[in-house]
Simulated assay, not measured.
Amino acid sequence: MRQARHPDVTELTLVSVLTALSDPIRVGVVRVLSDGRERGWGELRAPVAKSTLSHHLRVLRDAGITRTRQEGTRCYVTLRRDDVEARFPGLLDVVLAAAHADDVGRQVELGAGAS
């Protein structure tokens, strides 16, 4: 597998970030990752096929919202909170608060064995 490309913080655009956050599954992934911990892709549970979840993770990565790290055959993802905050101060906090209030993304959770 080739190394994933992550946009520099200066390359993040409001349109790409908001587009990535326009899907409830992707908002759910961000909610799960908002605790600041790196998670293995296999820990994430969503009511979509694995290939669809992989697509959602790629959209988030391409928008600069998450960072993906590969270790052998495993992939790990983390929220780029500091980078998004540097470019768009307060945006993630507002999105996460609204998602929590409206229960958006609740269907994405950590699977058994995740701590």
Rank of each mutant, 00 (worst) to 15 (best):
M1T: 13
M1A: 14
M1S: 15
M1P: 11
Q3C: 05
A4F: 13
A4Y: 14
A4D: 11
H6A: 14
P7T: 09
D8G: 10
L12S: 01
T13N: 02
L14W: 08
L14N: 06
V15K: 09
V15N: 08
V15C: 02
S16F: 03
S16G: 07
T19N: 12
T19S: 12
A20G: 06
A20M: 03
L21M: 06
L21I: 12
S22H: 07
S22N: 12
D23S: 13
I25K: 01
R26I: 01
G28S: 11
G28L: 02
G28N: 02
V29G: 03
V30C: 10
V30H: 03
R31H: 06
L33K: 08
L33Y: 06
S34F: 04
S34N: 10
S34M: 06
G36R: 04
G36C: 07
R37Q: 11
R37L: 14
R37D: 07
R37N: 11
E38D: 11
G40Y: 02
G42R: 15
G42H: 13
E43P: 05
E43R: 07
L44V: 05
L44W: 02
P47C: 10
K50M: 14
S51I: 14
T52V: 13
S54L: 14
L57H: 04
L57W: 03
L57K: 07
R58H: 10
R58M: 07
R58D: 04
V59L: 13
V59S: 04
L60Q: 08
R61F: 04
D62Q: 14
D62I: 03
A63V: 08
G64R: 02
G64Y: 02
G64A: 10
I65N: 01
I65H: 01
T66M: 04
R67G: 10
R67S: 13
R69Y: 11
R69A: 09
Q70T: 13
E71S: 15
E71T: 15
G72Y: 00
G72D: 00
G72S: 06
R74C: 00
R74Q: 09
Y76I: 01
Y76N: 01
L79S: 00
L79C: 00
R80Y: 05
R80L: 12
R81P: 02
R81G: 01
D82E: 15
D82W: 08
E85L: 00
R87N: 06
R87S: 08
R87V: 05
F88Y: 14
P89S: 12
L91P: 11
L91T: 08
L92Q: 04
L92T: 04
L92C: 07
D93T: 15
D93Y: 11
D93G: 15
V94R: 14
V95G: 04
L96K: 01
L96C: 07
L96V: 06
A97R: 15
A97G: 09
A98L: 15
A99C: 09
A99K: 03
H100M: 09
H100Y: 12
A101T: 13
A101C: 03
A101G: 09
A101P: 03
D102I: 05
D102G: 01
V104A: 05
G105D: 00
G105V: 01
R106T: 11
R106Q: 12
R106N: 07
Q107F: 03
Q107N: 07
V108I: 08
V108N: 08
V108E: 04
E109T: 15
E109I: 12
A112N: 05
G113S: 02
A114E: 08
S115H: 10
